[in-house]
């Protein structure tokens, strides 16, 4: 089974751009839209998703011989929920402010379709190496998607980049008659607009490359 289909290296590369979870598979939209108004939130979310994705992919791959077809989704969900609980508690213990800011979106990683999708299409059928590289590639792709949206939203919405962690100010503060941050970019509509425009840009580049 592991002989046909992409090699582990191809799986790794596919996850980053050709099958990017955000821009190509359009999975995991809930955190993508909800936590990307600052780079800190986006990267913390991406880190938590990466942890859960890699751990559950590895574990599912290890126990794939024991899976019963009619119970597999249940096993996936329980596995994911275990790691999500670990991630949630670790965040609450060591990054309390960030945990408060992300709020329900950390527990909601359980229903993040990227993870269950990778468990279903890859980890439950492939060996450890393929499952691991696949998970790492997808996690990097998700990080890239979140970071790109958060970059646009934080720079336009607050004028900063990593404003809280590093305090980098991209657009200098100006009097209101000269310039003002776009509040809409911090709010949910900004997430939809940014996602749509960036997805359009990605499709445009992909179409140009295909020619």
């Amino acid at each position: 089974m592991s002989q046909d289909g992409p090699t582990p290296l191809e799986r790794f590369i596919n996850g980053i751009l050709p099958e990017n979870p955000v821009y190509r598979q359009i999975l995991g939209m809930c955190p993508t839209l909800a936590v990307t108004n600052s780079m800190e939130g986006a990267l913390t979310m991406a880190g938590a998703v990466a942890f859960v994705l890699i751990c559950s992919n590895v574990l599912i791959s290890l126990i794939r011989g024991l899976l019963k077809p009619h119970l597999r989704i249940l096993v996936f969900t329980l596995t994911i929920a275990t790691f999500v609980t670990i991630a949630d508690r670790v965040l609450a213990a060591y990054m309390y402010e960030m945990s408060k800011q992300l709020g329900p979106y950390v527990p909601l990683i359980i229903v993040n379709c990227i993870i269950i999708c990778r468990c279903e299409v890859c980890a439950s059928k492939q060996g450890l190496r393929a499952a691991l590289t696949d998970a790492v590639g997808q996690a990097l792709g998700f990080t890239l998607g979140l970071a790109s949206i958060a970059t646009v939203r934080e720079i336009l919405g607050s004028g900063t980049w990593f404003g809280r962690w590093l305090g980098w100010r991209v657009i200098p503060e100006a009097a209101p008659q000269h310039w003002s941050p776009w509040v809409v970019m911090v709010l949910p509509p900004g997430a939809f607009i940014t996602l749509g425009l960036l997805m359009g840009a990605v499709n445009w580049f992909a179409a140009r490359k295909a020619k």
Partner: peptide, 10 residues
């Protein structure tokens, strides 16, 4: 609508 939400002060 965009500028109303983007620049509530202005």
């Amino acid at each position: 609508a965009f500028v109303l939400i983007a620049f509530p002060v202005a």
